[in-house]
């Protein structure tokens, strides 16, 4: 089942958030507005808002309050995508031209900064210092994760621990914070919002591992961007690390640099795809999901609990 179908019971509130996102990015400058809107209209899974809403369902759920958190986190995600496209020099995102390719790097930088500030502005409607402390810590970690990713490019001697720390910072903690901040905005008690943090964290780890696998096995149409991009850019993800445990494959992979030819990259991609690294990566993803499911089982019984469980299971089976 598709993710969007699973959380259809949240549809009315998701629609409120979509509308709020559109209203929030109303810039005075027509160009800035158009650039922000194009990103918004390119779609996306709206995973972070969904996790915020679900977190909120464990407390005093008031959409007019919780929407501030949901909108803010989606905007932060959007802002980071705009800047990431400049970093990666990417022309396509979700099958649509990126802001940097439709306009240029400068417009992308201004748009990203504008959206980021909008996100903080919206969250400032939540008068709970702990919410800001959690988000601020998350943002700094997120950035350090990206810096680390650049530092580790083409570093084939890195270990699994380093990879896990990187995806924790890069993806998992924002999903974790989404669950937790939704709960905090709804006055959920400490123990429960901390549990929700870990549920989001484990789901996020699993999600990113699958993302890294899909980069090898997905098609350009499914991914909305060329497949194999991670290795081409020197990002050493889990399938690469696991494939390198086979000495013959390792010998080939360590020769990959930013000067490698398309043919050399293609050969490396084939080696990884034909190894057991893909299955073993999925097994690790499964382990994280199991951890999430175990914690979900401990949550108070309500519809959001069932939904969290279904989302976790669907993420484990997603194809793109």
């Amino acid at each position: 089942m598709k993710l969007k179908m699973i959380y259809s019971f949240l549809n009315a509130d998701i629609n409120i958030i979509e509308k709020e996102l559109e209203d929030t990015i109303q810039a005075e400058s027509p160009l800035l507005h158009e650039a922000s809107l194009s990103l918004l209209q390119a779609g996306g899974k709206r995973l972070r808002p969904v996790f915020v809403l679900l977190g909120g369902k464990f407390g005093n759920y008031d959409i007019n309050n919780i929407k501030n958190v949901a909108v803010s986190l989606e905007l932060i995600h959007m802002a980071s995508l705009v800047h990431d496209d400049v970093i990666d020099d990417a022309d396509l995102r979700r099958g649509q031209p990126t802001i940097k390719s439709r306009w240029d790097n400068r417009i992308a930088m201004y748009t990203g900064d504008y959206i980021f500030a909008r996100a903080l502005d919206v969250l400032s409607n939540i008068n709970k210092p702990i919410a800001h402390q959690i988000l601020a810590h998350t943002l700094v970690e997120l950035c350090l994760g990206e810096i680390e990713q650049i530092e580790d490019k083409f570093q084939f001697n890195q270990n699994l621990r380093k990879y896990l720390r990187r995806i924790r910072r890069k993806t998992a903690i924002l999903i974790a914070a989404s669950c937790q901040l939704g709960a905090i905005a709804a006055d959920v008690e400490d123990e429960l919002h901390k549990k929700l943090y870990f549920i989001g964290y484990y789901i996020g780890m699993s999600y990113q591992i699958i993302d890294d696998v899909l980069d090898f096995v997905g098609t350009e149409k499914e991914l909305g961007k060329p497949a194999g991009g991670d290795l081409k850019q020197g990002n050493i993800t889990l399938p690469v690390l696991l494939a390198m445990e086979t000495p013959a494959i390792k010998d080939n992979l360590v020769k990959i640099t930013d000067h490698s030819t398309e043919a050399e990259i293609e050969r490396a991609l084939e080696l990884i795809k034909n190894s057991d690294a893909i299955d073993r990566s999925l097994t690790l993803s499964e382990l994280y999901l199991e951890k999430a499911l175990k914690l979900i089982a401990e949550l108070p019984q309500n519809r959001a609990k069932n939904l969290l469980r279904d989302i976790a299971k669907t993420i484990g089976k997603r194809k793109f």
Binding site: M109, D113, F116, L120, H132, Q133, A136, V140, I147
Partner: peptide, 25 residues
């Protein structure tokens, strides 16, 4: 260039972190 972009974002994150720590919304 890549690090310059991340550096700018990192400094923004620091501003937010410092003010969040003193609860100055």
């Amino acid at each position: 260039r890549q690090l310059t972009i991340l550096a700018g974002t990192y400094y923004s994150g620091l501003y937010y972190q410092i003010l969040a720590e003193i609860d100055d919304i």
